[in-house]
Structures are given as structure tokens and as C-alpha cells.
Design a binder for these strands. Sequence first.
RNA 1: GCGCAGGUGGCGGAGUGGUCAAUCGCAACAGACUGUAAAUCUGUCGCCCAUUGGGCUACGAAGGUUCGAAUCCUUCCCUGCGCACCA
Length: 406
Amino acid sequence: MFGFKKPVSRDKEKVRELLERGVSSVYPSKELLEQRLQSGERLTVYLGIDPTGSTLHLGHAITLRKLSQFQALGHEVILLIGDFTATIGDPTDKTAARVSLSTKEVIQNARLYKQQAAHLLDFHGANKAVLKYNSKWLAKMSMSDLSKLFSMITYAQTIKRDMFQKRIADDKDLFLHEFMYPVLQGYDSVAMDVDGEVGGNDQVFNMLVGRDLMKKIKNKEKFVLATKLLTDSSGKKMGKTEGNMVALNEDADQMLGKIMSWDDALIILGFELCTGVALGEIADLKRKLEQGMNPRDAKLRLAKEIVALYHGASVANTAEENFEKTFRKGEMPIDAPRASVAKDSLLVDALLTAGLVPSKSEFKRLVASGALSLVGGEAITDERFVIQHSINVRVGKHRFIAILVQ
RNA sequence: GCGCAGGUGGCGGAGUGGUCAAUCGCAACAGACUGUAAAUCUGUCGCCCAUUGGGCUACGAAGGUUCGAAUCCUUCCCUGCGCACCA
């Protein structure tokens, strides 16, 4: 567009951070990418996200952060919303075929994604991130375009993918349109004529198809940078489908609480992948942990760092206080739900209408197992507990309610 | 279209006339232990009433057989697999 190129930083430290931090693999190689980064050339790099849900989570944040490192160096970054590919469904890591989304859902999700990504990517500055939608080119492809594209990828290439192999081995369905997915994602690279792509470790296969197509169609060496995944103790992805994700738009208390309940083994990885804490400092922390530092404190620091990224430092502090209060000391959190009832009502009914307890049977079970107590006081052992004056009740560890007598 | 195998609780998956609200595993919830964890151990895990106990609703849907059905029969719907659709 413009006749001159914006300057690109070759800051050694930043480049090293980009190449090392949270990186799982680089194609063709780390060294070659480093050369390009040091060449002064302004690269175009993209990250693709399929708008399959309404929220981004910490897993997305890892790759977004990586992309933002390119942006910080002055490279052109593109956040690609896979609105078209989302309607197909990426077979990655799915044991069963994913249900296709409607166009309407996809568009809505995409809008929310940009808002959330804005925490990590700059959409306004001098070198602003560009938002693109792959329906723009994919939806327009004709039969013959498609056929031409597909003629460049062989069956063997596609079928060797782990996930497909697993599905076949398990006798699960494998639909033809799922073979399209990697090819279409690969074509994104061609359509945008990028120099490189960033993605999670689970996307390597798809990203390499793009690398292959770039070579064949544009005779260009697209680099691929795969980040490590944030996996929980069982090796499962912290992803939304798995249900243990921390959403970027989650409120501070919840976010902090969720991170605190992570396995200790995730602490160091969490620092590396989810925060901007210097690598040297992280190594330091690792040493301290090995020497017997209470992991709780390290984890709390991690949780605060992350919450601060999305909610600001002061909110993170409040969240910490709240957390200490409720979990360590067993006091009421500031934002506990409230309910007002008439004098002499039964506690069961109050909790039931407040939705704190799903059924009377469940209430009784909780009482029997000693899960109910007055905040800061003794346990409630009577199923027919009558509310005579305002009380604060705790259900299990996490649920609190302030009951006010009118 | 024909043949075969299936459809069970959030999921996976037992059960094939009564002892089934339904083995077991996962997930979830609670308790113990801790560091707020994780791991582990223990308990719970359809709804409602009750003190033991009882009632209601549930095993794809609707009917039927039976004293009694998740289990047998009929029809229908759905899913998977195979064969075919050029005869």
C-alpha cells in the first residue's frame, strides 16, 4: 500500500524470547527463522482461530501472545477468524466429528473474539493487527479451484495424520469433509500470502499443509512456529471442550480460583506460557520451588500475574484478598449472593430458591455429609433448620450465601 | 431398498421377565488429609415425602402380552455396519 516499509526491530533479547519462550517446534528450523528475523525484512505472520465458542481461553492466549511478540518487533500480524473453516469443524483431537456451526453463531463468536483478543494484540497502534475472515476467499472457491487445490495434496499425506489414524483404528466415522479441513486451512496461507504462521502444537499438521501449499503454489518457504500447549496433569488440553478452561473474560475471582486449583506441576509452564514474567525470573522461581518454597505462594503469584493481564493489577489484588478470605480463612467473599426470606422459613427452601442447591434430596445429602455450616460458626446438622435471624451460610467449600430475614 | 447390529442415567458401558432407580469406570458433589491445591482415602450421586419405610417418574417413541417388563411381542423413529441401487 505504502511505498516504504516500516522499520523492524532486531533486538536480540526480544528475538530470543520470541524463538524460545513457550515454543515447541519451528519449521523449517529455529535457526532459519532467526536468520529471517535478523534480516530486517518485515514479515507477515498470522494466527488462525476458529470461532467455535463465544470465549477465548488461556490456551488461545498463548498463541495470541506469541503473535503479539511478532507485532512488537514491528512485523505485520494477522488474526484470522476461521469463520468458514469453523463451519466444517477441525477434526483435531476430537474422537467424534464435531457438529457444524451455523453461520450466524460463527459471526457472533468472531465479534466477541476480537474484543477478547484486544487484551493481547494491538488493533489500534501504528502497526496494528489486521483481522481477516477466511470465508472471504474460501466461500468463493469454485469447484475447479477446489479440485486444483486438492490435486496438490495426496491421500497418503492426509491420512497419516494421527487423529485420522486413531479414528480409523477406533472404528469411528471419518467424513470426507474432514479431509478438507487441513487443505483449506493450508490455503489460508496462500490466500493471504503470509511468511509465517503461529499456532498451538496440536495445529502442526494443519500448519504444515499450508507450508506445503505455499511451496507448491508460491514457491515460498512459509515458516511455522508451534507453541507448547498448556496441559493439565493428565496431559489433557486446557481447552473449552474439556471443560477445565480459564476463559479470558471470566471474572477475576473465578479466574484466580481456577488457576489456584491447577496442579502444581503447571506452575512453571504457566509462567512461561501465560505471563510476561522474565524467563530468568522464572528459572529462579523454579529453583526456589525445588529448594522447598511453598508452591502455594508461587501459584498465587502466577494467578495474580494472569488476572492482572486481563483485569488490571488492582482488581487482581482484590481477587487475591477475596480468595484468602474465603478459602484460607473461611470467611464470606465480598460478592456472595444474598437472599431475603421471611422469619421462620426453612433453610432448605431458602437455598433451593436461591439455586444454591439443586433439590431437597441433595440438600439432605449435604447436611448428612457435614457440608453445611454457618460462616465462622458450627456445622448445620438439622435438615429442618429454621431461619430465625439473618445468617451467613456456607455450602461446601465454594458456595456462600447471606440470608437476610425481613 | 434388503440384511445385520444397536438405541440404558452428564459421558462410556453392564444388565436380556421379578432381588433394577438399574453392576462398573469417568466426570461431578461432599468429607478427611493439605498449602486454597494436586494425588490419595471415604461417602454421595433421579425426584418427592418419611424414623425403619413409602410414593412417583425413568432404560429411543407408542401400543400390547404378563400378577410383574429396561428385559418378551407389534408398529414407528433414529444410529452404525454390510450388500445393493447399472438386473
